[in-house]
Design a protein around this nucleic acid. Structure first.
Length: 271
DNA sequence: GCTCAGGTGGTTC
DNA sequence: GAACCACCTGAG
């Protein structure tokens, strides 16, 4: 078991910030997380969070996954002191981190996310995983399902996906799974690319436009300059920044600011 | 009925 | 380039 101080680290906030759709609160207040083929139980408390894993799993996987070696307070200190909106948003979302998630999972997740709401996205991902993903048995005896890989999904029919209520995204998922499975795009090569180049590569995939590519760049490739603009962000950028976000000021952490804004707009009371 | 939910792709000018 | 518009589904 590992203990993490809740200094710029909050599982409930990460859960609600909409970058991870496989982190769920249980009735007892603990959280279940599935990432790649790893399962983790977490227990958030007032001052710290307990992670139910070995030191080895923590060092080799979760420490990086939660980006625990990055100083998020330093990002918050870079916020323009006159920018009261962003300061409030960052304060409200203080415990958010940019996770380092699996590329294929993020591709699939954010193709599904388009014109969709968060509860429904979660349900669709769960259904897809249960139907096509590998089983994961936890020590508590519960069963979870990993994301289905591209090879598996490439063999599914569009009709089958439509029956799962994926709608018009079914075609995108199938086309993209086939591109990845056939090696038309090499996911393993993406982490070494610069942001602009990675974004361009991702946009070759069916159903991946600029917004989804930016989500993948930020939440999987950890390209901190990626700034996904969805309906929430567009609304805020238009109303608070006259249509232009000051990217230059936030080079290297624009994506973190995007998350603060997104979470504040979605969950904050005072807007 | 209508609009909206973390958009994309195709057509048209 | 920018401005449409079709596209699945379910909730309010």
């Amino acid at each position: 078991m590992i203990t993490i101080e809740n200094h710029c680290f909050s599982i409930p906030q990460i859960c609600r910030s909409g970058q991870c759709f496989r982190l769920d609160e249980r009735e007892d207040g603990a959280y279940d997380l599935v990432a790649s083929d790893h399962y983790l139980r977490l227990e958030p408390a007032q001052d710290n969070t307990l992670l139910y894993c070995t030191q080895e799993e923590y060092e080799t996987f979760w420490k990086s996954y939660f980006d625990l070696e990055t100083d998020y307070e330093a990002f918050q200190n870079r916020i323009d002191e006159h920018d009261t909106y962003l300061r409030s948003a960052a304060e409200f979302g203080r415990g958010i981190r940019i996770l380092r998630q699996d590329v294929w999972e993020m591709i699939l997740t954010f193709i599904i996310s388009q014109q969709n709401n968060i509860p429904r996205i979660k349900g669709l991902i769960r259904a897809l995983s249960e139907k096509y993903g590998n089983q994961i048995e936890t020590e508590e005896g519960k069963t979870f399902y990993a994301f289905p890989d591209a090879l598996c999904l490439a063999a599914v029919s569009e009709e089958e996906l439509r029956q799962m209520k994926l709608g018009y995204r079914s075609r995108y998922i199938l086309n993209t799974a086939r591109s990845v499975a056939s090696g038309g795009i090499d996911l393993a090569a993406l982490p070494a690319l610069e942001y602009a180049k990675a974004r361009e590569e991702l946009m070759k995939l069916s159903g991946v436009g600029g917004k989804v590519a930016d989500c993948i760049c930020l939440f999987a490739l950890h390209q901190m300059d990626a700034f996904p603009v969805d309906t929430h962000i567009k609304k805020v950028v238009d109303s608070k920044y006259g249509g232009k976000f000051p990217f230059k000021r936030y080079t290297g952490c624009a994506g973190v600011m995007q998350q603060y804004i997104f979470y504040y707009d979605l969950k904050g009371e005072d807007r």
